[in-house]
Computed example of a mutant assay.
Amino acid sequence: MTLKAHANGIEIAYDTFGTPRDRPLLLIMGLGSQLVHWDDEFCELLAGRGHHVVRYDNRDVGLSTHFSEEGVPDLTPGAAAPYLLSDMADDAAGLMDALGWPAAHVLGVSMGGMIAQALAIAHPGRVLTLTSIMSTPSPDAGPPTPEATAALFSAPAPDRQAAIERALEVWTVIGSPGYELDRERIAKLAGLAYDRDYDPAGTTRQLAAILASGDRTEGLGRLRMPALVVHGEADVLVQVSGGRATAAAIPGARLMTFPGMGHDLPRPLWEQIMDAVTDLQERSSVAAAD
């Protein structure tokens, strides 16, 4: 069931897995992606490992507040954006307030990893552990290949079927070449996301936030919570150098890279990633006890 919270002056749609007595885990999705793009099974497995999982729609996607009045932003270098990643990080902190979470384990993918980084920098006491997956500290670290850029900037879909076809085309380019592409899942999620809300201009505003938010390397260097960085060695949207730069910036961060993994989370890698997240949380508990 989708719930709504008022946070940071906007409305945020979210849902939960697990029970409130379990460890709080906030999942932050990437550019133009909705909470449904976190697989239900992925969330259920995390809940089975003792997490109270919350996934949510970032601003400008899904059922959360859209900034439609801002229109389509200018993406040229140096242009102002309607908001920044720091504002989206404040959304996450506001959602945690609404949930009654003083702090949480935070896991973000792609742009969600950038938001998680910004949250840890701005609100370090709210982040118990930081997991940054297929992300980067800066638009200049691990930039997309020409093929990925072309896929990212392909024309918006005029209808539902076209949106599904576009999703299949995009994930064929940026998905994991070492693993079979689950076309049925991609088509199902694309249709579901279209039915919940389809707003290409909102995705462009999110992209403007990424481009205008600059480099987080210096801020990441001040972090002291346990951190995990996961990246695919075959990622063409955020190349693996972005993950390496993230891990190098955060003191003590663990870096895991996977051959054949692109800009998605292949099902065969879930257990390894979840094991690493669990180990990270155990390190956090030991550090807190000390």
Rank of each mutant, 00 (worst) to 15 (best):
M1A: 11
I12K: 06
D15S: 08
F17E: 13
R21Y: 09
P24F: 03
L27P: 04
G30D: 03
G30A: 07
L31I: 02
G32E: 10
S33F: 07
V36R: 14
H37G: 04
H37P: 05
D39Y: 12
E41G: 13
C43E: 14
G48N: 14
G48I: 13
G50I: 12
H52L: 06
R55I: 10
D60F: 15
V61M: 09
L63K: 15
S64P: 14
T65S: 15
T65H: 13
S68Y: 13
E70L: 13
A79N: 12
A79G: 12
Y83L: 11
Y83W: 11
L84P: 10
S86L: 04
D87M: 08
D87F: 10
D97V: 04
A98F: 00
H105P: 08
H105S: 15
G108V: 06
G108C: 05
V109D: 01
V109L: 05
L119E: 07
S132D: 08
I133T: 02
P137Y: 03
A141S: 07
A151R: 04
A155S: 09
A162P: 09
E165T: 13
L168E: 14
E169N: 05
I174N: 04
R183I: 07
I186M: 11
K188E: 15
L189S: 13
L192M: 15
A193R: 15
Y198M: 12
G202K: 11
T204V: 09
R205K: 13
A208G: 01
S213D: 11
D215R: 06
G219L: 09
R224N: 03
P226S: 08
A227C: 07
L228T: 04
H231G: 06
D235N: 03
D235Q: 00
V238C: 02
V240N: 06
G243H: 05
T246N: 00
A247S: 14
A247E: 08
A247N: 10
A253L: 09
A253N: 10
A253H: 10
R254Q: 14
R254N: 02
G262H: 00
P266D: 05
R267K: 15
L269Y: 04
W270V: 05
A276N: 00
L280Y: 05
E282G: 00
